[in-house]
């Protein structure tokens, strides 16, 4: 069992969730309520990671933030190491591929709030900030949480983009999914089996949580 890889995966999942919490809330809410030309295009772009092979996302990340690019050089000059093949690069990749997982459930949850409820809140004297904190988030929290759980579970299982952008550097970018691949390549099926079983159990547990949450969302607004 590669505990280093395992804890790196957990850390990557938690950091991704932390970054995507505000993104999911604000982008999800914006897409739920805003009406603007090109909205469909924005939604399609945010959903792309769902259908693209992870290697394609990884490829574009490499060519846009790699060591030879302006962004990559700026990063290296500022922080003293490359963005790609580092934990930060892994976080960036993970955030991008998880955008639809965090945003879409939040968006659906905000959309499920009847417009009159929000109007009633405004007419009751609640400022837009209070409407968000006291009405919208309490009514949409299951959707927001569902997105985050989904993001966490998906991060644990992500393989292609992590390999492309992170390489397989122990303690830095070698996540448990890659460690399993590594062990299989080295004919160490015992270690691979333990890690695979652990990942399976964790994924099942998180998905179970998601289904429970989604049934509650349905009940509340049904």
């Amino acid at each position: 069992m590669d505990w280093v890889a395992f804890s790196l995966s957990i850390k990557l999942g938690l950091v991704t969730v932390a970054v995507l919490l505000p993104v999911g809330v604000f982008v999800g809410r914006w897409l739920a309520y805003a009406r603007f030309p090109g909205k469909g295009f924005v939604e399609a772009a945010l959903a792309l990671p769902l259908v693209l092979p992870p290697t394609v996302v990884g490829y574009y990340l490499l060519v846009s933030v790699g060591g030879a690019t302006p962004i990559g050089q700026f990063w290296a000059a500022t922080f003293g190491h490359n963005l790609v093949f580092s934990f930060e690069g892994l976080v960036l990749a993970s955030v991008i591929v998880n955008l639809p997982f965090a945003i879409q459930p939040a968006q659906r949850a905000f959309e499920a709030i009847a417009p009159e409820i929000r109007e009633a809140a405004a007419v009751s004297g609640l400022s837009p900030r209070s409407v968000l904190m006291r009405i919208e988030i309490p009514l949409a929290w299951q959707g927001i949480l569902m997105g985050l759980v989904l993001t966490f579970a998906h991060t644990l299982g992500e393989f292609g983009v992590v390999l492309m952008v992170g390489g397989s550097i122990s303690g830095e970018t070698k996540t448990v999914a890659i460690a399993i691949y590594d062990r299989v390549q080295a004919f160490d099926t015992a270690s691979a089996g333990i890690m695979a079983a652990t990942l399976l159990a964790m994924s099942l547990a998180t998905l179970g949580l998601i289904y429970r949450l989604s049934s509650q969302v349905g009940r509340r607004h049904g």
Partner: peptide
Amino acid sequence: LPPYRRRVGLVFQNYALFPH
């Protein structure tokens, strides 16, 4: 003025109570 700055009471057709 935005709604929250108008001293107005509005009873909606379907009441629009805060369900939570």
